[in-house]
Amino acid sequence: MSAAHALIAALRDPARAGDGDWNGLIAAARAEQLIGSLAYRLEGRDLPEKVEAIMEAARRDSAQARIQALWEAEMTRRALAPLGVPLVLLKGNAFHAAGLDAAIGRSVGDLDILVPKASLEAVEAALIGAGWERLKEADGYDDLYYRRWMHELPPLIHRTRDRMIDVHHTILPETARPKPDAAALIADSVALDPGSPPGAGSGLRILSPPDMIVHAAAHLFADGDLAGGLRNLWDIDRLVRQFVAADPAFWPALAERAQHHQLRRSVALSLRLAARLYGTPVDRQAAGPDRVTDRLFAARLLARNGWGQPVRPALRLAFYIRSHWLRMPPLLLARHLWAKARS
């Protein structure tokens, strides 16, 4: 059993953790940024002393990372409050702020937020006024590429806190073929603090449960090259289990939203893979029939050995090429590669 297989087996069923090689499991979990999630899954189990110490440190580290992520979200809320625009937290920050099961041990890197496209300029100016700085050279190729074609501003980094923020106006690059309905994402978002007046836009919001799954699926299968995808798929597993338990009408709602955002295929694929790798209970209709290519996606997600090294270079390269193909029409892709080769 490869280390990545051992990792998903341990996350699914903590009783199976460490029946092979602890070093391989820990290295794979760190490489996939799942060490915090694994540490909480193993909490309270009878582990070898050294393993328990490593897991305890990982839990302590996660708890601290959570505090930092929540603080960063709050700093952003304060910086943007005068604008009165809706501010939607995405991904890990949203899970933590809402206290979802997916947040347990979840690592958080950058702060990802979604705001209406019309307010992008004002949001960027307000952030820069509050201490964030541009990371990309202004008007350089990368900067212009982001502004013209991407679903987010070029990343900003805070001068003193050294934390990055990605300001999104939708959930896929403008160049991708599916066109998610960004206005609907924001309109259906949920206030974290229901006490704040509706529409005031001064509080933090998260996506609705179906949109959260749609975004996670889009991020995993319609955008990137699946590097680090085991964690994103673990998010989907945790979210689906929680949403299904809370709302019997979750599956039809998800089907409707996936269709609306033109992401039905990505959502179906993510459900099939979550079921295949993590045993997620999924609605067979939403997941659709298994396809032969599912095995390739699973193999790509599991391309990690017990030294934490990525393996299967040809497969990874194929998915890397696929990610560019999905993101860019051929002519734009050619121009992009030309510019990158010259720089």
Partner: peptide
């Protein structure tokens, strides 16, 4: 060090 290590270096 025994069987379980804190860190892996490659």
């Amino acid at each position: 060090p025994g069987r379980v290590c804190d860190f892996t270096v490659r």
